[in-house]
Design a binder for these strands. Sequence first.
DNA 1: GGTTGTGATACCCGTGGGGTATCGGGGCGT
DNA 2: ACGCCCCGATACCCCACGGGTATCACAACC
Lengths: 292, 292
Amino acid sequence: MDQPEVRELRYFVAVADERHFGRAAERLGIAQPPLSRAIRQLERRLGVQLFERNRRGVDLTEAGRVLQREAVPALDAMAAAVRRTQRAGHPQRPLVLATKAGASHELLRALVDAHAREPGAAPVEVLLCEVGEQAGLLRTGAADVALMHRPVDDLAGFDAEDLLTEGQVAIVPAGHPLAARTHLTLAEAANVPDLPMARWPRLDGTYPDGPGPEVRTQAQLAQLVALGKTLLVIPASSRAWQWPEHVAVPVLDAPSVTTVIAWQPNSRSREIAALVRTAAGLELAGGPAAAH
Amino acid sequence: MDQPEVRELRYFVAVADERHFGRAAERLGIAQPPLSRAIRQLERRLGVQLFERNRRGVDLTEAGRVLQREAVPALDAMAAAVRRTQRAGHPQRPLVLATKAGASHELLRALVDAHAREPGAAPVEVLLCEVGEQAGLLRTGAADVALMHRPVDDLAGFDAEDLLTEGQVAIVPAGHPLAARTHLTLAEAANVPDLPMARWPRLDGTYPDGPGPEVRTQAQLAQLVALGKTLLVIPASSRAWQWPEHVAVPVLDAPSVTTVIAWQPNSRSREIAALVRTAAGLELAGGPAAAH
DNA sequence: GGTTGTGATACCCGTGGGGTATCGGGGCGT
DNA sequence: ACGCCCCGATACCCCACGGGTATCACAACC
């Protein structure tokens, strides 16, 4: 009953996701028989059956569902250890800062500029992601720090420093009656029959039901607003990516959103600490000091 | 540049700990040459040098220190995934509750009794540990839940529910002048020349400097108090393991200690949730309700 | 009842992880 | 200063195991 190897867990996750040995094997770039054998070996090692082999694919057992939930973070931790080590081993390694494309543009510019002025600061590489990608990048070590938003993003498991607190605005199509308003309430913005809120995919890629259009990227969303198909409520600083056909209207009772710089608790290198300190020291309108 | 396997990281950790290939190989139960080769292969896979081979053992490089810090949690996560899966796969699996031997005795008894009265509750196995072991047991999945103390134990990374808040008492040898007091202050207890505070080992097994005796277990400590060599300040409920030669004196200004039940955030099975709910529902003198 | 689609089995090959024996090269003792 | 010693590296061998191809077994479906 010794320890399973990383390869076996990767194989397991593929089969658990696909619920089909053939497709999982294809996704893994190997043939099906070795995959079958590896899974049986994993089950033997653990002393636990993970799959019910039905004639129409496979189902997870109770234990299999537990392993599916546990395996991904474990593999992430392994990947993170590797990525951080590689970054530490290569001189001139840039720090990778992940941020939502388009969000926090002014803050990002200020942070990058201020950090560049620090003597001896490590170079910073900005990684622009779509919504919700930052947490995974931090967990796998693909990014060192991330700009995230509370309470929008899930910050569980990360350390974070507050940078900027601000209100939210509704982005509506120019020409729509709402565009003429000087301000809105949350209830008004949420219930506009001809501008239903867009639907984002869940973690498994499926979409919840609802009247709004399905979107996966901010660019899609921005264009849908310009086309008059939807509206959205976002932090004021995200206005940076406003299109000509967009109008921003403050939403008075929307909860404040705080932009934070987040990092993995156990990966506080000197370089990361310096970057966080620079970020916390920025003089920003609406920063934490203003909120107190 | 593919992913290293668990075995390679285990080997790396052994060498990093021992700083010596021969001893690490012995600890791992393999010969030295395969270990050398495995480390070189790991370095090649990562594209990073991990050790400086000196003629007198080895030193960690900067990257090696990063990997040493990162590898242990990653391996813990792998081990935890395995343990939890195995437990899920075996019927009648008991929940493992880790607690400091001797501490929270009354609470533990009340919890176990109350849980046994719940219909359909899973059996509970109590794992008695020494100081500071619970966190590691939770992280590797060797335990499902643990009774820990805030702010004494490091709860970072765990979810926890408060159970009981109480003051602390000094345990002093019977016959010592302090034993006659009705209460003490923290300053008085901390500066008794003939009863210096005992020293606990650091994570690496070495001891900090100081006048007090070196201890590794509570039994050692209890005996040292009975022998009149030291005193200690602990939560009041730990009086359960008081010896005849011990006298407990309340320390009025010591910070309150809260006993909590803690678990890994991503491992909330139905059984764990039921146990936590039972614990939170206990009617305890000094419980969280009394503190509010 | 044939066809289809699924995972399991049989078999072969090469990589690589394990072992033993030995080398090389600094540090240190006399 | 010379030689021993310690420790990691190298050389070499063996076989376990991961990967491949071909094929089987079996249920579902037309």
